[in-house]
Every structure is written in structure tokens, then in C-alpha cells.
């Protein structure tokens, strides 16, 4: 599908949007900040962990956006020439950011796993996973030390 197939109004809107140039980078900030808000504002520990996940996914989106080349295709080189040799054809999106983000996704799921292990343990030790309830328990038990 190309620009001509769209409704005229949509087409002009898209043109304006693409003129902005760096719009996609601004959008990732919105997604990232929704997660960041969850981490700061929510009192439930699982909600905080989910917020962390959204936060890091926003950063991944930024990296992947960085690697996009206009008119590019997936960086998997399948074209063959007459002699049946593999060769590159046309612009490809940058594989470096994909590699970095593969690593970062793995890191983020590992962090989530450790966080969940801690949360299950906290549930067993305190009987709750709400930050303010735990704070109340701790304040009663060790007044003045301020753990959380």
C-alpha cells in the first residue's frame, strides 16, 4: 500500500507526521513514562514490577526505532544472484540495535524473575504485598528505623 491509496486527508496528515522527523522517539517516551509512573505511584509490589517492565519496554522501542532505515527490510539476507550465491539487496534495517535489545529483553525477564521470587518471599514473610501495609508492620515492630 502506498500513500496514494489512502484517503487524501489521512495522507496529508501522515506527511505532516513524518515531517516531524523524530516523532517516533517522542512516542517511546510516552510509553516509557506510563511505566515509570506505575513504579513510583503504585503501592502494590507486583504493580511496581509490571511498571518496571513497561518502562524498559519503552527503551527497547526507542532502540528498535533507531535501527529503522527508510524503505528498509528485515536484516536477513535471502536474495541470491545468478550463481546461487547469497547477496544483499536493498537497504536493510540496522541489526546492531536488534542484537542489543535481544540482550536487554533477556536481562529484563531475568530481573522480573528475581523480583517475583522476592515478592513471593515477602508475601510469605509479611502476609501482604502492599507497600503501606508492610510499612505499618515494620513501624510497629522496629519504630524509628524506617526500612522502606
Amino acid at each position: 500500500m502506498n500513500l496514494a491509496l489512502l484517503e487524501p486527508s489521512t495522507a496529508s496528515f501522515l506527511k505532516v507526521a513524518s515531517l516531524a522527523g523524530t516523532y517516533n522517539y517522542a512516542l517511546y517516551v510516552v510509553l516509557m513514562m506510563i511505566g515509570f509512573y506505575g513504579v513510583i505511584a503504585k503501592k502494590n509490589l507486583i504493580k511496581q514490577a509490571l511498571g518496571l517492565g513497561l518502562f524498559s519496554t519503552g527503551i527497547f522501542l526507542f532502540y528498535i526505532s533507531m535501527g529503522v532505515v527508510e524503505g528498509g527490510t528485515a536484516p536477513v539476507w535471502w536474495t541470491t544472484d545468478e550463481a546461487h550465491l547469497l547477496k544483499a539487496a536493498g537497504p536493510y534495517d540496522n541489526p546492531l540495535t536488534h542484537v542489543l535489545i535481544l540482550t536487554a529483553i533477556v536481562v529484563s525477564v531475568s530481573t522480573l524473575a528475581v523480583a517475583m521470587a522476592l515478592i513471593v518471599n515477602i508475601q510469605r514473610a509479611y502476609g501482604t504485598i502492599e507497600e503501606d501495609e508492610i510499612r505499618a508492620i515494620e513501624d510497629a515492630e522496629h519504630p524509628g528505623e524506617g526500612v522502606i
Binding site: L45, A115, L118, I119, N121, I122, A125, Y126, I134, E138, H142, V147, I148
Partner: peptide
């Protein structure tokens, strides 16, 4: 048990 909270 506060070690868990500190760690999280």
C-alpha cells in the same frame, strides 16, 4: 525478613 524488602 527485612532483607527481602531491602533487596526488592
Amino acid at each position: 525478613r527485612r532483607a527481602l524488602l531491602a533487596s526488592l
